[in-house]
Nucleic acid binder design. Structure first.
Lengths: 111, 111
DNA sequence: ACACATATATAGATCTTCGATATATATTTA
DNA sequence: TAAATATATATCGAAGATCTATATATGTGT
C-alpha cells in the first residue's frame, strides 16, 4: 500500500459509497477502481471489502444483484440506496471537518 | 466528540508529536491544547493518551521528566526527542499523501 | 470539611483492517 | 490439451487503536 493502514480506519466505507455514486460496481472492480483513482495509494484488500459490503447491505446502505453482463462469469453488483446516499453525505461532511481540524493542528498556533 | 473516532486512527500520535514540537507539555495539557487547536473537533480521552505516550516513550520518540513548575502539583512533562522529530516528519508526509488520495477519490474521475 | 477540577494510570470491550485460506470460473500460455 | 495465472467472492483469526469504566491522588474554591 504505502500508507499506514490505520489512517484508512473509518474512511473506507465513505470511499466505497463514493465509488457507487458513479454507478453500480462489483467487489473486485471496486478494489481496482479505488487503486486507480487514488494513484495506487489505496490497495484495499478483499478480506476488508467483502465483510464491509455485507455490513453496508445489512444496514440498507447498498443493495445487490447478480448479473453476467454479456456472457462472462457471474458477478455480484452493488448499488447505492437512498439511505446510502444520506450516509455518504454525512461521511463527506465528517471528513471535511476532520481533515481541516488535522490541518489546523499541523499548521500550529501560538500557545 | 462529533467526529467518528475511527477517523482519528493512526493520526493521534502525529498530532501529539506536533504539539510537542512547540514545547514540552504534560498529558492533561495535551488534551486541552488539542481540543483548542482543533476548535473542539478532537476530544482525546485520557484512556487513549496515556498508553500512547508510554508507547512513544518506550520507542524513544519522547522523553519525560517530573516538574512542579512553581509550587503547584507534580506534573509529568513530555519532550520530543530527535528520533521523535523524524517520526513526526514521516507522519506528516504520510498524512499529505493520504488526505490528497481521499480527496482525489471524493472529487471523482470519469470511469 | 466537602465538592469539584486537575492529573495520571490501567483493564476490558469494541471496531476496523489485515493476512491467510478456501473455493470456483475464465483466460492465457506452453 | 493441460497447466498456470487472473478474476471473483467469501470467511476466520490476529493485530492495532480507541473507547468506556474504573482507580487513585492532589490542589482549589466554597
Amino acid at each position: 500500500m504505502g500508507i499506514d493502514k490505520s489512517l484508512l480506519s473509518g474512511s473506507t466505507a465513505m470511499l466505497i459509497l463514493r465509488l457507487l455514486e458513479d454507478g453500480d460496481m462489483y467487489g473486485y472492480q471496486m478494489i481496482e477502481e479505488l487503486a486507480k483513482r487514488s494513484d495506487n495509494t489505496f490497495a484495499l484488500k478483499a478480506g476488508t471489502l467483502y465483510p464491509l459490503l455485507h455490513g453496508l447491505e445489512q444496514q440498507g446502505m447498498v443493495s445487490s444483484y447478480y448479473d453476467s453482463a454479456g456472457g462472462a462469469k457471474m458477478r455480484k453488483y452493488y448499488s447505492l440506496t437512498k439511505k446510502g446516499r444520506g450516509l455518504l453525505a454525512e461521511k463527506k461532511a465528517e471528513w471535511q471537518l476532520f481533515s481541516s481540524a488535522v490541518n489546523k493542528v499541523l499548521k500550529g498556533v501560538s500557545i
